[in-house]
Design a protein around this nucleic acid. Sequence first.
DNA 1: TGCGGGGTTGACGCGGCGTCAAGGTCAAGC
DNA 2: GCTTGACCTTGACGCCGCGTCAACCCCGCA
Lengths: 265, 265
Amino acid sequence: MLTISRVAAYAGVTVRAIRHYHEIGLLPEPVRDRSGYRTYDAAAIVRLIRIHTLADAGVPLARVQELLDAGPDEFAAGVREIDKNLRAEIRRLRGTRQRLAGLAAGDRLALPRCVLDYLDRLRALGVDERQIEAERDGWILVAAQVPDQIDAVIAQKHEDLDNPDVVELYLLLNDALDWPPDDPRVVEIADIVERLMIRAVQSGEAGPDAITDSFATLLDAAMLESSPGAARLLAILEDRGWKGWTRIEKFPANRLDPAMTGDDA
Amino acid sequence: MLTISRVAAYAGVTVRAIRHYHEIGLLPEPVRDRSGYRTYDAAAIVRLIRIHTLADAGVPLARVQELLDAGPDEFAAGVREIDKNLRAEIRRLRGTRQRLAGLAAGDRLALPRCVLDYLDRLRALGVDERQIEAERDGWILVAAQVPDQIDAVIAQKHEDLDNPDVVELYLLLNDALDWPPDDPRVVEIADIVERLMIRAVQSGEAGPDAITDSFATLLDAAMLESSPGAARLLAILEDRGWKGWTRIEKFPANRLDPAMTGDDA
DNA sequence: TGCGGGGTTGACGCGGCGTCAAGGTCAAGC
DNA sequence: GCTTGACCTTGACGCCGCGTCAACCCCGCA
């Protein structure tokens, strides 16, 4: 008597697969003997072999029946479509491999090379690693948001770094990391920042186009989270009429030229 | 406030994906506001972007955490392994495509070309399509069982067909399909078959090596199922001392040469 | 009578979410 | 104050092709 395991062996499939085909109606349930065993005939093996041949060639089980019953034309059409899907899947995997290679090549932090170079420059200037990490996270956000403008934005940042004030600011912030939040020296930092902001406003810089208001707000929030003293600094600046950090804005029209006078609030 | 959908938009993932990452512990659950909404911070977006970058490059979610925490060497090793898997998967799919192309080229019945050619020859001899289908199913079984010997077996069958007795037998069986099971002419068929069997035994043919006894039994059963008169035919032959059909065997040593004498049982 | 190697059904697991159901919440417009 | 529509919540099933238990029955042999 042909039991399920012998049928499986003849057809080159597993017992479990046969039961699965029964479950989904691809292979009719055979009659049972008195103890409930399935008893097959040779025709079942033939059908199994044909199912297995198709399945092994990538035909989804849901379409096997249809293809077994098809005439030559429908069969060819079905095969073409399945092959199209296989090709698409292979393309997808190749794309995945490309991205994986990109990871290996350096952007495992979700950052393009130019940003990594920029961060290296900061590192070379002596900027503290903690600050670089905060900076890096900011750039991860930006790069995800405007991936095709990131090069231009970074180029601008490199220019900024040619300004000694900017470098001094970074180094001051370096020290500020260990200050208590109410350290009076924060005011010095505010002075430098304000000077830079004024220059930026005067030269008409507006930041990258695609940075929306809400995204700028997000970046500001990220900056606030990154350091305990950041809130103080922003508060002082806001007192002097500056709003935002990512996107510079002077908000009341009054007190237009307090440059270089220090904190007089 | 950063809701889940805004975070999803910033990170370029779906809301459902974020919840999934929470479920599997890849992204920590953030605090909730008073109405139960998750409230995120910018750091969560950064982590999400990094998760997404890895996942998109084919890193299984189960390994993302590990790679996020890894140093450069472990990271590189992990990436290499994942890439190996991707390559293997692509190879697998290419193999699948090959098999699919094979299907399209003709063996959609799970039969190699040489068997199809053989069946075409039978068809050309005037063998009935019903008989060819039975024959075909038998060959599907054989081809699945001994795929690398099928060419040799078929070559032997082609030689057999050069014998006019064999052709006559096929054509007689053609007619026999419509005979009632107890038609006396079955004896004529038995005579021819016996003649052929004797010749086969004398020339020392033994059938393909890899055909085991149990498989021969299966093929005999398949032959029995294929036609109602087959049982009669086998019964007559067995009466004359012949056992089996697929594998020819003379079983009692007595009555060694009843050739061409007809049914004397 | 026990054992070892069959068979049976039923259920969960995998991977990475998509998608639906059945609600509670929020901001805005009437 | 009420409705509307967009968004949030949890919970659950679905996909695809089986692999892999678990718990139990059946058969032949020593």
